[in-house]
């Protein structure tokens, strides 16, 4: 178990003229939840398709469970569970038929895999005779996860599993992933949502086909390079416009009920920057405006990276 569960080295992939992945390298350890976080079109799905042996990389190597994704595809296929981004089960088959079909093609039975899937499958078992296309989004996702798990894979690839699922089901889903991790399962999951990134053990930020940073989610904001100030005001929109024109604005964007202001003077003392900013705002007519320094979160970090990829790359 000393080798990493997934090893990706210098993987690149082009589709005609579009670069989908550009020199990607990372490792995933056994038993961790590894998140690939990035906007749509960042290349996450292509990476999943390479790791699940569906697509060949143009260059670079990758192994899953020590098996080469190009040469050992059949060995990989019987040991991974894959849940594509789009619901890809048979809508015209019932819940039970889908599950037993996927068990059979992995040369096993639902009974043998039941222990592992029970916490998830039990919730949809009352609808076992319902056609899969008549399930709600959350139930479809549970069925898909059950089908991906029924053969007791050693590693699970989940491509944006919570897209189109309500907030409660999303939270439940992540609780289930943590339960699964307890059994020793390695999970590689992609998501466009920052709150979900926080529930991964490690996160890889991916954008524009490049990997930006790999860290535990709580560490991702740690390297935020500039002073970050949270600003509140009753007139948020006018303030946003005004702050963008202020002397040291690097970036300003709404964040929940606040605005997050990044000062362009690296190394400046955040407290004095905040005080200076508050004074500037008051002098510009935003009498109720308040500013205080904050630590950057993963979302701030991500927005920063997305807006200035060139600075990171250099």
């Amino acid at each position: 178990m000393s080798d990493p569960a997934v090893v990706v080295r210098n993987i690149s992939k082009k589709f005609e003229t579009t670069v989908a992945l550009d020199d990607i390298s990372f490792d995933v350890s056994h038993g961790e939840i590894f998140g690939l976080v990035g906007p749509d079109g960042a290349g996450k799905t292509t990476l999943f398709r390479i790791l699940t042996t569906l697509v060949l990389p143009d260059s670079g190597t990758a192994t899953v469970l020590g098996l080469d994704v190009v040469k050992d595809l059949w060995a990989i296929r019987s040991r991974v569970g894959y849940m594509p981004g789009k619901f890809s089960l048979y809508g015209d088959l019932t819940v039970a038929e889908n599950l037993s079909f996927f068990a059979s093609v992995f040369r096993t039975t639902v009974k043998e895999g039941y222990n592992l899937i029970a916490p998830i499958y039990r919730q949809i078992e009352p609808f076992a005779e319902r056609r899969a296309d008549q399930l709600s989004g959350g139930m479809k996702q549970k069925l898909a996860l059950s089908c991906a798990l029924v053969h007791r894979p050693d590693i699970l690839f989940l491509d944006e599993p919570t897209t189109g699922v309500d907030a409660v089901s999303r939270r439940e889903f992540w609780d289930q992933l943590h339960t699964l991790r307890e059994t020793g399962l390695t999970i590689v999951v992609s998501t466009p949502y920052m709150d979900e990134a926080l529930r991964c053990d490690r996160v890889a930020l991916i954008q524009g086909s490049r990997l930006l940073e790999i860290d535990p989610p709580e560490d991702i904001g740690r390297n935020y390079p500039l002073p970050l100030i949270a600003v509140t005001s009753s007139d948020r929109y006018q303030l946003l416009l005004a702050l963008r024109e202020s002397p040291h604005a690097h970036s300003v964007y709404p964040f929940g009920a606040e605005l997050h202001f990044t000062d362009d003077r690296a190394g400046a003392d955040p407290a004095s920057v905040a005080a200076e900013l508050e004074a500037w705002m008051k002098s510009h007519g935003f009498t109720d405006a308040a500013a205080h320094p904050i630590a950057a979160g993963i979302e701030d970090s991500f927005i920063d990276r997305m807006s200035t990829p060139a600075r990171r790359a250099s």
Binding site: T53, L54, R77, L89, G91, V105, F106
Partner: peptide, 13 residues
Amino acid sequence: ELGTLDQLNVTPI
């Protein structure tokens, strides 16, 4: 079209 072929391809069929 439905994407089920991808799902089938990541099985030892």
